[in-house]
Write a protein that binds this DNA or RNA. Structure first.
Length: 213
DNA sequence: AAAACGGGGGC
DNA sequence: GCCCCAGTTTT
């Protein structure tokens, strides 16, 4: 995909994204701790389930202090349907404890510091930076990785390679919108196994129509 | 680079 | 039962 067509593709997707139901990153706001929480819960979990669990948790314990006030059992019960709930509950409590003890209860706005937190990798750290702190960062999950490779915009093997390639190539104005926009696109049209190319509005720009994963 | 980690929900 | 699912850590 050429740079010119990339711009057209982003513009078309921006136009039609209102047709799609809001997902987690598009509906939960910019609070850095809640973005962090939703990312921990989202691991190998359907987005609808992640979204609902994050909303339930926000109603009861929206801050690190609140997380530590409730028991691990109660926390597990709230997030239960996301799966791996024991491990995720432990991770959330550890993160809350570290934020309180080392960062005055605030989420750091620095990549290296974020990556030190347990259960936080590049996808999560970069998403917090871009969504909550409006910093130039690119959060690459499996959706972004799959889509930009199908487009032929990059040719990469892993999400980390994709992040590097996009940092080199992607014009800065798109850094803020690529994740929220392309995750929606990946959930509704450019699906992993059965991409819905027959209803894709940017099919003409895609170099690998119908390629799985 | 690949495997391990370790669960619910839809069908 | 078998498949899917915003990933991170360890080998």
């Amino acid at each position: 995909m050429t740079d010119e067509n990339l711009g057209k593709a982003f513009a078309i997707l921006q136009e039609i994204k209102g047709q799609w139901q809001d997902n987690t990153v598009n509906s939960l706001g910019n609070d850095p701790f809640l973005v962090l929480v939703s990312c921990v819960l989202s691991h190998r979990t359907k987005d609808q389930v992640t979204k609902e669990a994050t909303q339930r948790l926000r109603a009861v314990a929206p801050t690190p202090e609140d997380i530590l006030k409730i028991s691990e059992e109660e926390l597990s019960q709230i997030i239960y349907p996301v799966g791996f709930y024991r491990r995720k509950a432990k991770t959330l409590r550890k993160i809350a404890e570290i934020l309180i003890n080392r960062y005055q209860g605030k989420v750091p706005d620095d990549l290296e510091e974020l990556l030190k937190l347990p259960g936080v990798g590049r996808k999560t750290a970069n998403l917090v930076l871009t969504v909550s702190f409006h910093k130039p960062a690119i959060s690459v999950d499996t959706h972004i990785h799959r889509i930009v490779n199908r487009w032929g915009y990059v040719e990469t093997k892993t999400p980390e390679e994709t992040e590097k390639a996009l940092r080199e190539k992607l014009p800065l104005p798109y850094w803020q919108i690529i994740n929220p926009l392309l995750v929606l696109f990946g959930q509704n049209i450019c699906l992993p196994r059965q991409p819905r190319c027959f209803e894709c509005p940017i099919e003409a720009f895609c170099e690998k129509r119908g390629v799985k994963n």
